[in-house]
């Protein structure tokens, strides 16, 4: 039986390629979610308009001291 090293290397390369591609896909998705999360998260320094509006309605539009 010939050695067939090319088949062995092809099998290992293919497995490495698939696992590497999945690993990268997870990383990419993680980065996407991080950027999405950062863009949708409310800013801590400026109050959300809807909250400010509701607060205003409750206090009859009077500003807080």
């Amino acid at each position: 039986m010939p050695d067939n090293w090319s088949f062995v290397f092809a099998a290992y390369a293919l497995a490495a390629l698939v696992l590497g591609a999945y690993w990268r896909r997870l990383g990419r998705r993680e980065r996407e979610l991080t950027s999405k999360g950062a863009s949708t998260a409310p800013s801590e320094t400026s109050p959300r308009k809807d909250c400010a509006g509701k607060a205003g309605a409750r206090t009859g539009g009077a500003s807080r001291p």
């Binding site: 039986m1 050695d3 067939n4 088949f7 062995v8 099998a11 290992y12």
Partner: peptide
């Protein structure tokens, strides 16, 4: 019997 190609078994 199979030679080196049997090494594919480990994956």
């Amino acid at each position: 019997t199979q030679g080196n190609v049997q090494r594919i078994m480990y994956v």
